[in-house]
Computed example of a mutant assay.
Amino acid sequence: MTTDAALALSELADDRTLLGRTSTAERVASVLRERIARGALRPGVRLSEERICGALGVSRNTLREAFRLLTHERLLVHRLNKGTFVRVLSAADIVDIYRTRRLIECAALRELGSPPYRVHEAEAAVSAGEKAAAEGRWRDCSTANIHFHQALAGLAGSARTDDLMRGVLAELRLAFHIMDDPRRFYEPYLTRNREIVRTLEAGDAPEAERLLGFYLEDSRRQLIEAYPEQPAE
Rank of each mutant, 00 (worst) to 15 (best):
M1V: 13
A6F: 07
S10N: 12
L18S: 12
R21G: 15
A25C: 01
R27H: 09
R27D: 10
R27F: 07
S30A: 15
S30G: 13
L32N: 02
R33Y: 00
E34M: 10
R35P: 02
I36K: 01
R38G: 09
R38Y: 01
G39H: 00
A40S: 10
G44N: 04
G44T: 04
S48W: 00
E50D: 11
E50L: 12
E50N: 09
R51I: 12
R51L: 13
A55G: 02
V58S: 02
S59R: 11
S59V: 10
N61W: 13
N61R: 14
E65I: 04
E65R: 10
R74L: 13
L76V: 03
R79V: 12
L80D: 15
N81R: 14
K82Q: 13
V88L: 11
S90A: 13
A91E: 08
V95H: 13
V95T: 13
R99S: 15
R99L: 13
R99I: 07
R101S: 11
R101Q: 12
R101F: 03
A107Y: 07
A108C: 04
A108K: 01
R110N: 06
E111V: 08
L112A: 01
P115E: 05
P116K: 08
Y117D: 00
E121I: 06
E121A: 15
V126G: 03
S127G: 10
K131I: 14
A132V: 04
A134Y: 04
G136F: 00
D140Y: 01
I146M: 11
I146P: 04
H147R: 15
H147D: 14
Q150I: 11
A151Q: 03
A151C: 07
A151G: 05
A153I: 05
A153H: 00
R160S: 14
T161I: 15
L164V: 14
M165N: 14
R166T: 09
A170E: 01
L172V: 02
A175V: 09
F176E: 11
H177K: 12
M179W: 06
D180A: 15
R183V: 06
F185N: 06
F185D: 04
E187S: 09
L190C: 04
R194E: 10
R194Y: 00
R194L: 09
I196L: 08
V197E: 02
T199D: 05
A202N: 08
A208H: 04
E209R: 14
G213S: 15
L216M: 05
S219D: 11
S219V: 12
S219C: 11
R220N: 08
R221W: 02
Q222I: 09
L223F: 02
I224L: 15
E225H: 08
E225G: 01
Y227P: 02
P228E: 01
E229K: 11
E229N: 10
Q230D: 05
Q230K: 10
